[in-house]
Structure formats: structure tokens, C-alpha cells
Amino acid sequence: MVDPVAPTEDGTANAKNHFTKAMEEAKAGAQALAGEYREKITKTTGDWSGEAKSKSGEAKDKANAFAADAKVKATEYANEGKTRTSQAIVGLSKMIDENVALIDDKVGPKYGDYARSASKSMQDAAARLDEKSLDELGEDAKEFVRKSPGLAVGMAVAAGFLFGRLFKKSK
């Protein structure tokens, strides 16, 4: 009689065969699922990637347009500021010219001559300011800082102090 618990050579081979086939089927199924998953992921990320690139391009275009508009506005404001500064210098020069006779009478002709000289210098400075472009003024400022860094720092500190005093909130 054959023991049902004892493995037979034929039963072991048969079990190994079934096990091998089951493993091969499981591997094939896993590979098929992995392939489908990869395909879905590639399609999804490809869609996302394309959309992200599109949105990125749109944002970059908007930023470039905004930067170009800002540059145009800044140039307009700078030119307007340059014109107003020139006009203010000319106005101050005219005010000095109008009061030169009073200076001559009250303080003396020597000081009147100083006032005339200062007025003439201011008119010349205003004319030079009108003639130069913003780029030329920027280069002049850079050259001034290179030649006299200490004076440039001192002027910046003084200007900062004055602006601070002008805009200081009263308590």
C-alpha cells in the first residue's frame, strides 16, 4: 500500500511542475501589470510635463512683458525726474538773479558777484543735465564714485540723513 503522506517521485515532480508554472504565470502577470502601470505613469507625467512646460512658458512671457513695461515706466519717470531737477535748478538760479541787487545793497558787491557766479554755474549745470542722456549720467556717476569714493559715501550719508529728517514722522 502507498502512504498518502509520503511523497512519491511522480507527485514531487508534478508539484514542482505546477509550482514552476504558477511562478511563471505570476511573473508574467506582474510584468504585464508593471508595463501597464509604466504606460499610465508615462502618459500621465507626459501630460503633466507638457502642461507644466506650457504654464512655465506663459508665466515667463508674462514676466518678460511686465519687466519690459516696468523698464519703460522707470525710464519715463527717470527722464521726468531729470527734467524737473533741471527746471528746479533753473528756477533757483532765476531766484538768485532776482535777488542779486538786494545782495549787492545789503552785503556788498563782492557777495553779489559770488551770487552771480553761483547762478551762472547753476544755469550751466542745468543745461548739461538737459543735454545728457540717462546712460551718460549713470556713467558720470560711476566715474565720480571711482575717482572720489570717500566723497561719494559722504554725500550718500548726508542725503540719507536729509531724507530721514524730511520723512521722519512727527510724534
Rank of each mutant, 00 (worst) to 15 (best):
D47S: 05
A26V: 04
S49P: 06
A52M: 11
K71F: 12
A141C: 15
H18V: 08
S148N: 05
V157Y: 05
A152Q: 11
L137V: 10
A63M: 10
L102T: 14
A127D: 02
G46E: 01
G46W: 07
N14Y: 02
T83N: 04
K21P: 06
E9T: 07
S54Y: 12
E139W: 10
Y77P: 14
R116E: 00
I89G: 06
S49F: 14
E24W: 12
Q87C: 13
D104I: 03
K53N: 07
R165T: 06
P149R: 03
M1W: 05
F161H: 07
S49G: 12
H18K: 07
D140C: 01
A32P: 05
S54M: 12
T44K: 12
R165E: 03
F161P: 02
A28T: 03
P7Y: 13
E24P: 00
E24C: 06
M23V: 12
A28P: 01
G50D: 04
L33M: 07
L137F: 14
G35I: 07
K16E: 09
V90A: 11
M23L: 10
E76D: 02
M23R: 05
V153N: 15
L92H: 09
E36N: 00
V72E: 13
E25Q: 01
A88I: 13
A159V: 11
F163N: 10
F66W: 15
A74V: 13
D97V: 09
A68P: 04
E9V: 05
A67K: 12
I103A: 00
D124V: 04
A6I: 01
L134T: 10
V145S: 02
E143Q: 13
E36G: 07
D105S: 14
D61R: 03
A118V: 02
L166T: 08
T42V: 09
M122I: 00
G35H: 13
Y114V: 01
I41V: 03
E98D: 14
T20R: 01
V90C: 04
K132H: 09
F163L: 07
K110N: 13
D47F: 14
P109A: 15
G91R: 08
K53F: 08
V145D: 04
T45A: 04
K132A: 04
Q123P: 02
G164T: 00
V5I: 04
I96D: 02
K120T: 00
L162H: 03
T12A: 06
R146I: 06
V145R: 10
V153S: 12
K147I: 09
L162M: 04
E9C: 11
D61F: 09
G57T: 12
K27E: 11
V153M: 12
A68L: 07
S170C: 04
K171T: 13
M155N: 11
Y37A: 03
K120Q: 00
G11Y: 08
K142W: 14
K21C: 11
K71N: 15
K62E: 15
A22V: 03
E143K: 14
A63R: 15
D113H: 02
K147G: 10
K73I: 04
G29N: 11
D3P: 01
K62F: 08
A127V: 08
K53D: 12
K27N: 09
A152C: 13
A22T: 01
D3F: 01
T45N: 09
A32F: 11
D3R: 02
Y77A: 06
A15E: 05
G81A: 09
S56I: 14
D124L: 01
S117H: 00
K142E: 10
W48N: 06
A156H: 10
E131L: 08
D69T: 13
F161N: 05
